[in-house]
């Protein structure tokens, strides 16, 4: 039977998180109508599912649609076929990242990577460094401008003791850093093995 199946659908089923669900979509469009960022998707989820089945590999993986997912899970709870749509979108986005097909300067991809790198470093998120990393991602000049624009928010948070400038010099983290890093390294190795692009 495998020859009747287009290769991109097969690839998604094998390599993308929860990708084996894609074939279950019945094209009702409830996901598209439920998404808070719906109007900003070039291709809403049900269209992405149909495009996968039609073998449109480049169009799907280089689309910035999946990056519009806010992880609100509205699509999941409303889907009549119970597809884990949120996770499939995350999976497609991650897979596109691995293949280097994400549109240049996609802000959520950049922020997501920044967030991950931040938490991996010491095991917990350092919010100060995360904000600064976000503001300064396009260089120093733009960073200063961004930081100035958000100055009142930052000062307000500091005043309420919900942002600590001293976090710049260290801050919270796990104690067993070596075990934590060895664990993630191993997890990444296994992930790479299982999800190696076709």
């Amino acid at each position: 039977m495998s020859k009747y199946r287009n290769s991109f659908l097969k690839e998604v089923e094998e390599k993308v998180e929860e990708g084996n669900w894609v074939k279950m979509c019945m094209q009702c469009g409830v996901c598209a109508g439920s998404c808070p960022f719906g109007p900003h998707w070039a291709h809403p989820p049900q269209e992405i599912f149909m495009m996968i089945r039609a073998g449109k590999r480049e169009e799907v993986l280089s689309s910035d649609s999946m990056w519009m997912c806010t992880s609100c899970y509205q699509c999941i709870v409303r889907c009549p076929r119970k597809l884990p749509i949120t996770h499939i979108m995350h999976g497609l986005a991650t897979y596109a990242s691995r293949l280097g097909l994400v549109p240049k300067s996609q802000p959520t991809q950049a922020f997501g990577q920044l967030f991950w790198d931040n938490l991996v470093k010491v095991g917990r998120v350092n919010e100060l460094k995360l904000s600064l990393g976000l503001y300064f991602k396009d260089g120093f000049g733009q960073g200063v401008k961004n930081a100035m624009a958000m100055q009142s928010v930052g000062l307000g948070l500091m005043k309420a003791k919900r942002l600590n400038p001293m976090e710049f010099f260290g801050g919270h983290g796990v104690s067993d850093k070596s075990g934590f890093h060895a664990m993630l390294k191993k997890a990444q190795e296994i992930e790479d093995q299982r999800k190696k692009p076709a």
Partner: peptide, 19 residues
């Protein structure tokens, strides 16, 4: 004791599934 970050939702972008 010694809990770590859960990866939140946005962690998918850098972390993938198993990590």
């Amino acid at each position: 004791p010694d809990w770590n970050c859960c990866g939140a939702s946005i962690g998918y972008a850098g972390g993938g599934e198993l990590p």
